[in-house]
């Protein structure tokens, strides 16, 4: 025991310091807390980075063989790489709720709810972690794919990533809201997540072009916000910036963010019960 060597409480805290709190500062704290275990354990980071490359390497050639010439825009990679980035964001963001579920079970989330961190930062900070990973994955994918004929349009690509970040935070927030809603029956999380994930993915024309699909699928895809994100990403990665396709993508991403934050913050406020 060496309790006597502790700094006296007055020296630990001063009133002015205690009262300061802001969304960006809180979000930074939550984000750094989320990133730290990953930085401490580079293996998980490396696996996370390699995953989309493996998928690209295995799925891309098949796609190239079966769709040669029929892919809109001509180049298979130009069509497929942006979609893989959206898919990576989709998988990463939609599953983040499971991390929160785990921390709700262990008690860490409850402890954080009793801190002065703003409730929105608890959502956004966590969701942003996936975006940091996504940024690293994107850099790697592009670096690997450029030698195979991917044409890089830096401005479009950066905007594409920003758009994905907006979408990802929104989707991540929805994933957290789901985790909070099913916290007493945690297996429900995966049931609901999978039920939504695959239809959304297929109906976005992400992996296979919907142009060759039946009419009803094309109609349904128009009601899928992900379709507009995928289309916008393809446009941005081909260097289009000020086009209607990109504009609709921005609308879809912003709508996802708005709905996600509204539902997520409401859930976060109630998650103490």
């Amino acid at each position: 025991m060496s309790a006597t060597t502790l700094t006296p409480p007055g020296a630990v805290m001063t009133e002015s310091r205690v009262e300061r709190s802001s969304f960006s500062r809180d979000t930074g704290i939550v984000l750094m807390r989320e990133l730290r275990p990953m930085l401490r354990d580079p293996f998980s980071l490396i696996f996370g980075l390699v995953q989309p490359i493996v998928f690209l390497a295995l799925f891309g050639p098949l796609l190239g063989g079966s769709l040669a010439g029929s892919v809109p825009g001509g180049s298979v990679w130009q069509w497929f790489v942006p979609a893989i980035l959206v898919m990576t964001a989709l998988f990463g963001s939609s599953t983040v709720g499971s991390n929160l579920l785990y921390e709700m079970q262990t008690g860490a989330h409850e402890r954080m709810l009793v801190t002065p961190l703003s409730r929105s930062s608890l959502l956004v900070g966590r969701a942003l972690k996936e975006m940091v990973t996504l940024g690293a994955q994107a850099v790697l994918i592009v670096a690997v794919m450029v030698p195979f004929g991917l044409r890089l349009h830096p401005a479009g690509a950066l905007l594409g990533l920003a758009l994905l970040a907006v979408f990802g935070i929104g989707l991540g927030s929805l994933s957290y809201a789901l985790a909070i809603a099913v916290r007493k029956q945690d297996w429900m999380f995966w049931v609901v997540q999978q039920t939504f994930l695959f239809p959304l993915m297929i109906l976005s024309g992400m992996l296979l072009p919907l142009e060759s699909g039946p009419g009803w699928m094309q109609v349904l895809s128009r009601f899928n916000p992900l379709t507009y994100i995928v289309d916008a990403e393809r446009a941005l990665f081909s260097g289009e910036i000020a086009t209607a396709t990109v504009g609709w993508g921005v609308v879809a991403a912003a709508a996802t963010l708005a709905v996600g934050l509204a539902v997520g913050i409401r859930g976060m406020r109630r998650s103490g019960g």
Binding site: V12, M13, R17, V18, E19, R20, S21, D26, I29, M32, R33, R36, P37, R40, Y102, E103, Q105, T106, G107, A108, E110, R111, M112, V114, T115, P116, L117
Partner: peptide, 28 residues
């Protein structure tokens, strides 16, 4: 300061990291 029934420290975190995060959270 709150110590709940569960573990306040995240299970995949390191002890010192969690304490540090907690400190900056409160404005240290």
């Amino acid at each position: 300061g709150y110590v709940g029934q569960g573990n306040g420290a995240g299970h995949n975190q390191r002890a010192a990291d969690e304490l540090y995060s907690q400190g900056v959270t409160y404005g240290l």
